[in-house]
Structure formats: C-alpha cells, structure tokens
Amino acid sequence: MVTYKTIVVPTDGSENAKRALEHALAVADRNHAELIVVHVANIVSAISNFDQTPISGGYVSEQIAEDMEETGKEILNDVVKEIPTGVKVKSVFEVGSPGPALLAVAKKYNADLIVMGSRGLGPLKGLFMGSVSSYVTSHSTCPVLIIK
C-alpha cells in the first residue's frame, strides 16, 4: 500500500486551493503525514504589470514586494489556523517563479505528494494558475494530485 509522509500544498487563498487543502488533509489524516503549506510570491510578474509606472529609486517595486510578502504570510496564517490540531504542519513562504519554487520546496522537504488546485486567482491576486499546475505535473519527481 502506498503511504505518504510529507505532502506539499500550495495555497493562494483561492477556492481551488482551499479544496486542494481539504483533499490533502484527508490524505494526511489517513497516512499520519505532515503538511507543508506553501505560498509563492511571484514578485517579478507583479512588478512587470507596472512597467508603465515610473519607478523612482525602486520605491514602487520595494513596496510591491513588501505588500506581497505581508499578504502571502497572512494567507499562510489563515490556512494554518484551519488545519486540525492533530495534523503536523509547516508553513513556507517563498519568492520566485511558482512552478520551480514549489518543486524546490517539495525537494527540500522530501515530499511524497503535491496536492494543488488547477487554477488560482489570476496573475495579480493569485499565483497558482493552470500553467503552474501543468508545470508542476510535468516536472515533479513525486506524484501530483490536481484538484478542480
């Protein structure tokens, strides 16, 4: 029988991410697995959306980065609060391109499974789009469960 010890669950606050967490919790409960809840801030993508804005001294990009970090950590805290007390959980905040960053986290924690939503909130509010789930399934060395 297949067992899972470490499950990576990307989150961006979207409904698909919440459904993915529900599935990850069910798998974790049956396997007594640890959840690694991950939020990736794609700051380069967010800043590129402001390419018509004059940036004096990098203030705008610095403020965007700070706001994204604050928002990402709030999302992680909200998700962790929803996890039952008997489930082991770690929260991880990363900055970078979501697909490669998720795979790096999975490798770092020796993940047995990645459970993620198929689409997120969009490029500004959310970071896990269909292309990210496609990237992760194509490049992951562990099984990936995509939740619609």
Results as ranks from 00 to 15, higher is better:
Met1Ser: 14
Val2Gln: 15
Tyr4Met: 13
Thr6Tyr: 02
Pro10Ser: 03
Thr11Met: 05
Asp12Met: 04
Gly13Lys: 06
Ser14Asp: 04
Asn16Ile: 06
Ala17Ile: 15
Lys18Gln: 13
Lys18Tyr: 01
Arg19Ala: 06
Glu22Tyr: 02
His23Asn: 15
His23Ser: 09
Ala26Tyr: 06
Ala26Met: 12
Val27Gly: 05
Val27Ser: 00
Ala28Lys: 08
Ala28Asp: 01
Asp29Lys: 15
Arg30His: 03
Arg30Cys: 07
Asn31Ala: 04
Leu35Met: 01
Leu35Arg: 06
Ile36Arg: 08
Ile36Tyr: 00
Val38Met: 03
Val38Ala: 08
Val40Ala: 13
Val40Arg: 13
Val40Asp: 07
Ala41Asn: 03
Ala41Met: 05
Asn42Thr: 06
Asn42Ser: 12
Val44Trp: 10
Ser45Val: 04
Ser45Met: 05
Ala46Val: 15
Ala46Thr: 15
Ile47Leu: 11
Ile47Arg: 10
Ile47Glu: 12
Ser48Tyr: 15
Ser48Thr: 08
Asn49Cys: 01
Asp51Lys: 12
Gln52Phe: 13
Gln52Cys: 09
Gln52Asn: 14
Gln52Tyr: 14
Thr53Phe: 06
Pro54Glu: 03
Pro54Gly: 04
Ile55His: 09
Ile55Trp: 04
Gly57Phe: 08
Gly57Arg: 05
Tyr59His: 12
Val60Phe: 02
Glu62Asp: 13
Glu62Val: 15
Gln63Val: 14
Ile64Leu: 14
Glu66Arg: 12
Asp67His: 14
Met68Gln: 11
Met68Arg: 11
Glu69Tyr: 04
Glu69Cys: 02
Glu69Asp: 04
Glu70Cys: 02
Gly72Ser: 04
Lys73Asn: 07
Lys73Pro: 01
Ile75His: 11
Leu76Lys: 07
Asn77Phe: 11
Val79Pro: 02
Val79Thr: 13
Lys81Ile: 09
Pro84Ile: 08
Pro84Met: 04
Pro84Gln: 02
Thr85Arg: 08
Gly86Arg: 10
Val87Ser: 06
Val87Trp: 00
Lys88Arg: 13
Lys88Pro: 11
Lys90Arg: 11
Glu94Ala: 15
Val95Met: 11
Gly96Thr: 01
Pro98Val: 05
Ala101Glu: 07
Ala101Cys: 07
Leu102Gln: 06
Leu102Ile: 04
Leu103Trp: 00
Leu103Ala: 12
Leu103Pro: 00
Val105Met: 10
Ala106His: 03
Ala106Ser: 07
Lys108Asn: 09
Tyr109Ile: 01
Asn110Gly: 15
Ala111Leu: 07
Leu113Ala: 01
Ile114Leu: 04
Val115Trp: 08
Gly117Ser: 05
Ser118Pro: 00
Arg119Trp: 05
Arg119Ser: 13
Gly120Gln: 10
Leu121Trp: 03
Gly122Met: 09
Pro123His: 11
Lys125Tyr: 03
Lys125Met: 11
Gly126Asp: 03
Gly126Glu: 05
Leu127Val: 06
Phe128Gln: 09
Met129Gln: 12
Ser131Arg: 13
Ser131Asp: 14
Ser133Lys: 13
Ser133Asn: 14
Ser133Ile: 00
Ser133Arg: 10
Ser134Asp: 08
Val136Ile: 00
His139Cys: 13
Ser140Val: 00
Ser140Pro: 00
Thr141Tyr: 00
Thr141Ala: 12
Cys142Asn: 06
Val144Gly: 03
Ile147Lys: 11
Lys148Gly: 11
Lys148Thr: 15
